[in-house]
Design a protein around this nucleic acid. Structure first.
Lengths: 224, 224
DNA sequence: CCTACCGATCGGTAGG
DNA sequence: CCTACCGATCGGTAGG
């Protein structure tokens, strides 16, 4: 899914709907208040979208969750789909940040970078408050095509980080499958844990994310 | 997700809504006509649910697709959720049949059984007309709890077939992860192809299902 | 399986 | 960000 960037895309946040007295104007002087309300909407939307799906969640549900009236979210977002995009965008930005941090510092063997990528991705899916990426995985088809382009740009950056490490592992003989397909399969294996993994352990034998990551590495990495 | 079987569940089909002159009565004499209409609904529902999601598809969409009026699907199904369950049930029954056939015949090494399980599962997801299981994967959360039990019974049977083979591979040292987690991860890797694999190749380099299955086996099976 | 319909809910808007 | 609202659509039903 190649990205076709639109001209002059805002660098960070989604452009808020321009009203007569939108939060955009207030941002310059007091960014905290308005941005917090917007962030509240994105966070609660993510939680509800993950739980009930994009089409199964109404704007009223989201407004209720943040203590607004039903029409008020449209002061921050032009429509429901832009709120969905904001959720996905937030997830990818947080994910990219966490992943870059996990790999920062001294150079390390590709196998160790891989271990960190796997562990970080599990965290992105399952740490508390991490509903953004699961929403992207579940509700991708609900995002209109013009919004997809923007998200794909970020997703391509994330995939590229993984691909570099997998290419190396393949060259070293530690990965016995085509490196591009390996990326799709390994990320698929991890992503699918969104459907079965529960952070709150219901039994003592429940595996934690460290163990889960170690098992994933053991599954696909062939000893040299 | 352990199954807690309800007593006296019907052996095969979902019980149709009992109306004054329901298709259930007609079935005894002329099963073909009524069953075909029901099967039409299930097939078109699967196609639309996969494309637009359960909540994104209206009963009117489905009725249109089979040439009925908007109220008529409720002659065959008590409500929209029972139609969703029928889609998932159909998928698991077809999947179980295909899988049992793929393993039938003379005994074979566990690695060969594994190869066939992987290849068959890709077919279940991507062969033409195979929309049932992807709907189960995507829209599981839309299924009410009381309907889930029924589907979980079938899903447990499918998982058990996989688990037997993976346990053997693990005992032989061909699988270097906990066998139960390996099942979740491997099926996850394959299932996730529902989000990126397209059967119609758009480029000559597009991999086919045989190659995809071979790459999956190569990724996780360690040479003895 | 169709006709005709219902109450509920939805995304979204005008005006302040 | 609230009030008050709109047209559209939804799942589902009564009666034949």
């Amino acid at each position: 899914m190649p990205a076709k960037p639109r001209p002059a895309a805002p660098p960070l946040a989604i452009a808020p709907k321009r009203s007569q007295r939108g939060p955009a104007a207030a941002n310059a002087a007091a960014p905290a208040a308005a941005d917090n309300r917007r962030a509240d909407l994105v966070r609660e939307a993510a939680r509800l979208f993950r739980e009930k799906g994009f089409d199964g969640t109404s704007i009223r549900d989201i407004a209720d969750a943040v203590g607004m009236r039903s029409g008020s979210p449209f002061y921050h977002f032009a429509n429901k789909h832009e709120l969905l995009m904001a959720v996905m965008e937030e997830g990818l930005r947080l994910g990219l940040d966490r992943t870059e941090q996990a790999l920062a510092g001294a150079a390390m063997p590709a196998a160790e970078r891989f271990r960190r990528l796997v562990r970080t991705h599990y965290g992105i899916l399952h740490d508390s408050g991490s509903d953004f990426i699961p929403v992207m995985l579940y509700d991708w088809r609900s995002l209109p095509a013009q919004y997809k382009r923007r998200i794909i740009e970020l997703k391509d950056r994330y995939d590229a980080i993984w691909q570099r490490t997998l290419d190396e592992l393949h060259a070293q003989g530690l990965l016995r499958a085509d490196a591009k397909l390996a990326r799709l399969m390994i990320l698929g294996a991890i992503n699918f844990s969104a459907t079965w993994y529960r952070a709150k352990p219901r039994s003592a034998s429940r595996v934690n994310l460290d163990e889960l990551a170690a098992q994933t590495v053991a599954l696909v990495l062939h000893p040299s």
